[in-house]
Write a protein that binds this DNA or RNA. Structure first.
Length: 563
RNA sequence: UACCCCGUGGUGUAAUGGUAGCACAAGAGGUUUUGGUCCUCUUUGUCUAGGUUCGAGUCCUGGCGGGGUAGCCA
């Protein structure tokens, strides 16, 4: 395959539109995007798609991408959210340099634009109440009726709008509306409200304003002010585009192109800010950063890497049709990245004591273990081996099923990086539970291979009982038991919460090197999964690990198929 | 039953009038000191009916199906 054919990787429809715009010199070759979240909640994986799209396009076309807080509704917005958004976008690996903006930065210009519209006879102050306005709006199938205040003179409108601004009216008493067409088939063009009265303090502008612009009015003008070329948003705003265009055309302002794409849906979770907020407020999760949450903060605490998320966003593509992406694809991207970068270690989740009968009582050997078979540069470490060990309960069966390669009475297995051991005896307690295994080891198999060429089918992980460190391990499963918890309108999505989405293991035993496990760094417990130090709850004397994701488990499949 | 958008394997996507490809998932096999990774192979697809064309997933028309829209939310 030559250079040209190998380069013909496909691009999404938005990038294609930009390529066409550049070809026709529509924006003089500029590409300027923006990511415009409303600071009323935490960012989630769906936002990551938009972030990767907007910042990714800027990168691909040598353009720029702004970060803009869409803060036009002070009753919903909080500083905590702004801070989390900034941290999350940064963590994802994107840089807006000095282009950090707020729609509220433009309140004065927005106000002046509204005045311009009034002067052009394209906006009027309306005294209709919210209910009356709804009644005048018509329906999806019937045209609306014009407001009785639609014919006010420019002077009167100007005076009234001034009074609105000066706080002379109560909330809801009056609005400023664009004068467009009450008979339009597009309800958003039926004289939409562009300013409303809110006697609410704004987190940035304080008490300066008591009128606030609506999204449709603020967004297009903000884009215009920032000289955005391509204003990318989700599908539900498609029907708003005629209004976006109308406002900019009437104001004769620089005019970006709005482009809509389908938002991300992931199965076995919910993605709306409203529902995520409810999960937090309802105590169904421990917070916005609960490792089960699809929020960026949750994924980060869970142990996801920015690279995995970015790669996922690239792999899912961008289209205009609504779809549901399989969480398995996200998990694949996660494992793919973690496999390459994770330091390996051994840890036992459900300890079963093993005594190596023929191993000297007080002997300790420091065995060599490879840190990452995928990356020799990560080197090796020493793991202590001694007479008493722990292995995982799952790795022993008194009566092994077919194809079971692990330890069983009379069977020989390899202890990873250790020795071949053979199970000689099984010790049970009064309840008949296996509590200890007596094994022998073959001193000639140090490191895990036998000089006589003998091989074993199974390799299991272990830790030295004497040198192991204790840890709490938190295992996570999907938050919901059904693929689309919000699909059934007659049932609350919370009914589908997975009761077993979190299980805590209090007595895990880890190899001593993990005592210095670094927060924010992924580890693989060999044969078990990927883990990370919990950012919040882990303490020096109380190690807490989150299981980011299990390893793929083909033995589980075999067992399942056998049933 | 208004207007707008959208229909490609199980899922997510590519093919810009010229061989329907990729990834995930699923399944089979191989390698392996992680039942991981890696490698090979297999199954499954253009919503439908017409039309244009030498040739249609692609263009046109109708139907069917899905989504969006009636906040002084974004």
């Amino acid at each position: 395959m030559n250079e040209t054919t190998s380069n013909n990787i496909s691009v999404d429809f938005i990038r294609n539109m930009i390529i066409e715009d550049n070809a026709s010199d529509r924006f003089g070759g500029d590409v300027h995007t923006r990511f415009p979240p409303e600071p009323n909640g935490y960012l989630h994986i769906g936002h990551a798609k938009s972030i990767c799209l907007n910042f990714g396009i800027a990168r691909d076309f040598n353009g720029a991408c702004n970060l803009r807080m869409d803060d036009t509704n002070p009753v919903k917005e909080e500083v905590e959210y702004i801070e989390s958004i900034v941290a999350d976008v940064k963590w994802l690996g994107f840089d807006w340099q000095d282009r950090f903006y707020f729609a509220s930065d433009y309140f004065q210009k927005l106000y002046e634009s509204a005045v311009t519209l009034i002067k052009k006879g394209k906006a009027f102050v309306c005294d209709l109440s919210a209910d009356e306005m709804r009644a005048h709006r018509g329906s999806l199938t019937e045209p609306g009726k014009e407001s009785p205040f639609r014919g006010r003179s420019v002077e009167e409108n100007l005076a009234l709008f001034e009074k609105m601004k000066n706080g002379e009216f109560k909330e809801g008493e009056r609005t400023l509306r664009a004068k467009i067409d009450m008979a339009s088939a597009n309800i958003h063009m039926r004289d939409p409200v562009i300013y409303r009265i809110m006697h609410t303090e704004h987190h940035r502008t304080g008490k300066t304003w008591c009128i606030y612009p609506m999204y449709d009015f603020a967004h297009c003008i903000s884009d215009s002010i920032e000289k955005i070329t391509h204003s990318i948003c989700t599908l539900e705003f498609e029907i708003h585009r005629p209004l976006y265009d109308w406002i900019l055309d009437e104001l004769e302002l620089y005019h970006p192109q709005q482009i809509e794409f389908a938002r991300l849906n992931l199965n076995y979770t919910v993605m709306s800010k409203r529902r995520l907020l409810e999960l937090v407020r309802g105590g169904h999760v421990s917070g916005w950063d609960d490792p089960r949450m699809p929020t960026i903060a949750g994924l980060r605490r869970r142990g996801y890497t920015p690279e995995a998320i970015r790669n996922f966003c690239s792999v899912i593509g961008v289209t205009k049709f609504n779809s549901f992406t399989d969480i398995a694809l996200l998990e694949h991207c996660l494992r793919d990245d973690l496999n390459k970068r994770s330091m390996r270690a051994m840890g036992v989740l459900n300890p079963l004591k093993v005594v190596i009968e023929n191993y000297p009582d007080d002997q300790v050997e420091e065995l060599d273990a490879i840190n990452n078979p995928e990356d020799p540069a990560m080197g090796s470490r020493k793991v202590p081996f001694s007479k008493e060990l722990y292995i995982d309960k799952e790795d022993f069966r008194e009566v092994p099923p077919p194809k079971y390669f692990r330890l069983a009475p009379g069977k020989e297995v390899r202890l990873r990086y250790g020795y071949f051991v053979t199970c000689k005896d099984v010790i049970k307690n009064a309840e008949g539970e296996v509590v200890e295994l007596r094994c022998t080891y073959d001193p000639h198999t140090k490191g895990g291979s036998s000089p006589d060429g003998r091989t074993v089918k199974g390799t299991i992980h272990w830790v030295s009982a004497k040198y192991a460190i204790d840890a709490e391990i938190r295992l996570y499963d999907r938050l919901f038991t059904c693929e689309d918890p919000s699909c059934d309108e007659s049932r609350e999505y919370t009914e589908f919460l997975n009761k077993d989405s979190l299980s805590i293991i209090g007595n895990a035993k880890l190899e001593p090197s993990l005592a210095s496990a670094i927060p924010g760094v992924p580890y693989q417990l060999e044969r078990v999964g990927y883990f990370c130090v919990d950012l919040k709850d882990s303490k020096k004397d109380n190690l807490v690990l989150n299981r980011t994701i299990s390893l793929k488990d083909s033995w589980a499949k075999i067992q399942k198929a056998g049933k």
